[in-house]
């Protein structure tokens, strides 16, 4: 199993994407399937300039991603994710608007205070950074570790490394993150906008080596941590406080059907 939890949704607003954009997205998904990926998350990056309130979602769903476009075409489990940019935690629209409608919730803090406030107060899964620009604040070891202890994961998005003008920024942010986190609580994802930018498992292992991640953490970053994030995210919606859930498999996205054999067994054990 291989995870890629960041495939950007073409539009950042609630406008529907054009047909060509959808076709490009499908080509990425086809490539991922070819490279033996199994679990994919489509990432809706909400435009921070949009000021949304509860009234806006009275009629439409907060989730613009239409998964029915990809039904029966790919042998992939496709989830939805939202990324919210956090500038000032005070005028934050509130996660409750979105938490019921997305499988994963990620935040992108723009300053130190937003990061520490989000970690202590909000319920989300992933912390992401803008790897195309330099980080404007110093990541403190304490803040990062308290996040990792609470089950939040820091994301490395490797698409910018493939473009020459953003490569140095990517490396500097990665260096900052790996130093602060001591390569714990990190996961890696593509953020690919074109099908060429998706990499195989072997490439990811080499990339981890380049950004100086401890060798024994590499397998965790590629396999374990994404699956942990996926489970905690799915449990938020599918279960009641992680105790009872619907269906028989939490990670299953297809429509659930009860096994015929199961019913046969139950019928045989019924009272005669």
């Amino acid at each position: 199993m291989l995870f890629d939890l960041n495939i950007p949704w073409p539009s950042t607003t609630y406008a529907a994407p054009s047909a060509s954009e959808i076709a490009a997205l499908k080509s990425i998904l086809a490539m991922l399937q070819h490279l033996q990926y199994t679990h994919i998350a489509l990432n809706f990056q909400l435009d921070p300039s949009l000021k949304l309130t509860k009234k806006d979602f009275a009629k439409k769903s907060p989730n613009p991603i239409d998964l029915s476009l990809f039904e029966h075409q790919f042998n992939l489990k496709i989830y939805t994710r939202i990324t919210l940019t956090l500038h000032d935690p005070a005028d934050f629209p509130g996660l409750k608007l979105f938490s019921d409608h997305f499988d994963l919730i990620a935040i992108k803090p723009l300053n130190d205070r937003a990061l520490s406030v989000a970690i202590t107060n909000f319920d989300f899964d992933i912390i992401s950074f803008n790897y195309k620009e330099n980080l404007k604040y110093w990541l403190r070891n304490k803040a990062v570790h308290s996040g990792a202890a609470k089950g939040k994961y820091f994301e490395i998005v490797y698409a910018p490394v493939l473009q020459p003008d953003t490569r140095k920024n990517f490396l500097s942010v990665c260096k900052n993150l790996v130093r602060a986190s001591r390569s714990q609580g990190i996961l890696i994802s593509s953020g690919a906008e074109r099908s060429v930018q998706v990499k195989t498992k072997l490439d990811l292992q080499i990339m981890c080596k380049i950004i100086n991640i401890a060798p024994h953490r590499v397998a965790q970053i590629i396999n374990e941590n994404p699956s942990k994030v996926m489970i905690s995210g799915r449990l938020r919606n599918q279960s009641y406080k992680q105790s009872v859930a619907m269906g028989s498999d939490i990670l299953e996205t297809k429509k659930h059907k009860i096994d015929d054999d199961e019913i046969a067994v139950l019928r045989k054990l019924q009272k005669k």
Binding site: M1, T38, G151, S227, K228, I231, S232, L235, Q242, L251
Partner: peptide, 18 residues
């Protein structure tokens, strides 16, 4: 009152098998 916690320990049981 049940509480949601860090779900890392559930990976062995609920995670994808391959």
């Amino acid at each position: 009152k049940l509480k949601g916690r860090n779900a890392d320990d559930l990976v062995d049981l609920l995670g994808a098998k391959n």
